[in-house]
């Protein structure tokens, strides 16, 4: 086992452990801060999947934008939102959580069973891309290719996403403003 695999499995352990903490913690602020750790570790996993640009985007947008927004919203809503949570009995298998735990474990079993069944190395399109040399290797520079593709093949989705972002900006500002004193 070489160094890259060791780092990969350490990142995996950090990801799953902190995600479990996010899900199971009773304390909202702690789980928001553990979500930071989860998102950073998932960005590390993206790097191991040879997608550096997606990892950078994840750090910039998720960690820089989404989590700061979440913290902001949490700190704006007051302590009362936490008080209702104290009454929930903790523990993974209390009566409130047993159906949810059962559903997610069963879903995990289904997904794991499917992933065991499929032989990914022998799928047709993966075999074809390996035969054509269409596989990203570690030393490739993918960001240049992403830029070229974004400006040629995926130009229409890019423009639609930009329009959607503007609509979201206007819509969020409109919903969040104080309602005028109507009669």
């Amino acid at each position: 086992m070489n160094l890259a695999q060791v780092i990969f499995y350490i990142l995996t352990a950090i990801t799953i452990g902190s995600a479990a903490f996010v899900v199971l913690s009773q304390h909202l602020v702690r789980s928001v801060f553990m979500l930071f750790v989860t998102l950073f570790a998932v960005a590390g996993l993206y790097v191991f999947a040879l997608a550096d640009f997606v990892a950078l985007t994840q750090i910039v947008i998720y960690v820089g934008g989404v989590l700061v927004l979440l913290l902001f919203a949490f700190l704006l809503s007051s302590k009362e939102s936490l008080e209702g949570m104290e009454k929930i009995p903790s523990g993974l298998l209390s009566a409130h959580r047993l159906p949810g735990a059962l559903i997610s474990v069963l879903f995990l079993a289904v997904l794991g069973f499917i992933f065991f069944q499929i032989d990914f190395e022998n799928l047709n399109w993966i075999k074809a891309s390996v035969a054509n040399g269409n596989v990203i290797s570690v030393s490739d520079n993918t960001i240049r290719n992403i830029g070229i593709n974004l400006m040629s093949k995926y130009l229409l989705p890019l423009e639609i996403v930009s329009i959607l972002l503007m609509m979201v900006l206007i819509g969020a500002a409109h919903i969040a403003r104080k309602e005028p004193k109507a009669s």
Binding site: I16, F107, F115
Partner: peptide, 18 residues
């Protein structure tokens, strides 16, 4: 798959919108 199921668990059982 593990991450997805943890997220599903949170969506089903949590009582807090955030």
């Amino acid at each position: 798959a593990i991450l997805f199921c943890l997220g599903l668990f949170a969506v089903i059982t949590r009582k807090n919108a955030i």
